[in-house]
């Protein structure tokens, strides 16, 4: 009976397990207020990033980096031409803010993605291979984990001069994998003991096959969850670097905006300039964090348990 009804319900969907899983997850996600707020905020920022392409099209003076309002020579407050005002050389703050959203996404997501890929690969290798490999990789992870990322980047910047934004992304990724790899290693260790891995072994599966076909699909959701948290930290690191003056001078990021406010001495004089990037940084990190928390709930197996009767 139960079997029959189920079959009709999901007819045609069975072939798309990804979709069914997604809908199931979405059902749990929807119940989380935190997740919904995070998602709304995130969509807002994404729209901002998309909109960043518009102002320069209206008038070259709205180019966030090079566009200068010819009639303005110092920082001014909000006006009809510049809704959020201008910076010290007459550049439009709103366009800069929109461009900053694009950069934040780019830096956050790519740095997080790279560190997750690295962390997952290393974590799975360490957990699955065990012995020497495990010890070696985990000690390496420990070493990197205790290094203060910001300080190292500052030193690198001091040595190599100005850093390109992609170099910064790469450095963040290289310094942010150990946490992920520890989690993934733990997960791999417990998966390795599970009978389905043994069953694959008995079937004759090679190590490569076991890692990629059996372990990886089971750790990926977790890795994905961690990615949302990593985005947060990558954005913060980039902002801090830029604020301290070690950012990519060719990119307008929110941290860069803050640095300009600071350097030109407008810190306490121009709230219309200081507040928008500051608030945006806080909100975007918060939104990714909230999203991560909600995803955590979706992935938590305890909430997934079927209802038990006996």
């Amino acid at each position: 009976m139960a079997e029959e009804t189920f079959r009709t319900e999901t007819k045609g969907m069975e072939r798309y397990p990804g979709l069914t899983a997604f809908l199931e997850g979405w059902g749990i996600f929807r119940q989380s207020l935190l997740g919904k707020i995070g998602l709304v905020l995130l969509i807002m920022f994404a729209l901002m990033a998309l909109c960043s392409y518009i102002p320069p099209l209206i008038d070259p003076m709205y180019n966030p980096m090079t566009g200068v309002d010819p009639v303005i020579t110092c920082s001014t407050g909000p006006s009809r031409a510049h809704w959020l005002g201008t910076d010290f050389m007459g550049r439009d703050i709103l366009s800069q803010l929109l461009a900053g959203a694009r950069v934040a996404f780019m830096v956050g997501v790519s740095a997080a993605f790279m560190s997750i890929v690295l962390g997952t690969a290393i974590g799975m290798t360490a957990g699955y291979m065990g012995r020497f490999m495990d010890t070696f990789l985990m000690r390496l992870a420990d070493m990197i984990m205790v290094m203060p990322t910001l300080l190292v980047v500052l030193i690198l910047a001091a040595v190599f001069g100005q850093l390109n934004i992609w170099t910064i992304v790469l450095i963040i990724a290289l310094f942010r994998w150990p946490g992920v790899s520890r989690i993934i290693r733990g997960q791999t260790l417990s998966l390795k003991q599970r009978p389905f891995i043994e069953a694959a072994k008995v079937a004759g599966a090679s190590h490569v096959r076991i890692i990629f076909r059996h372990i990886m699909p089971n750790v990926l959701p977790l890795a994905f969850l961690f990615m949302t948290f990593r985005v947060t930290s990558a954005i913060i690191i980039e902002a801090a670097l830029a604020f301290l003056g070690f950012g990519d001078p060719g990119t307008v990021s929110w941290g860069m905006m803050l640095q300009w406010v600071w350097k030109t001495g407008h810190m306490f004089k121009a709230p219309y300039w200081l507040l928008p990037p500051g608030i945006c940084i806080s909100l975007i990190t918060l939104s990714f964090y909230m999203l991560g928390r909600a995803m955590d709930e979706v992935l938590d197996p305890r909430l997934r348990k079927e209802d038990q009767t006996d």
């Binding site: 397990p17 599970r194 009978p195 389905f196 043994e198 069953a199 694959a200 008995v202 079937a203 004759g204 076909r213 059996h214 699909p217 089971n218």
Partner: peptide, 24 residues
């Protein structure tokens, strides 16, 4: 070993644990 495994197989105790949840 691989050749041996074609000839000898095993059925495990707990069917809730012996199938990979991510595979059809």
């Amino acid at each position: 070993l691989k050749a041996f495994r074609r000839k000898v197989q095993m059925i495990f105790q707990d069917p809730y644990q012996s199938l990979n949840p991510q595979r059809s």
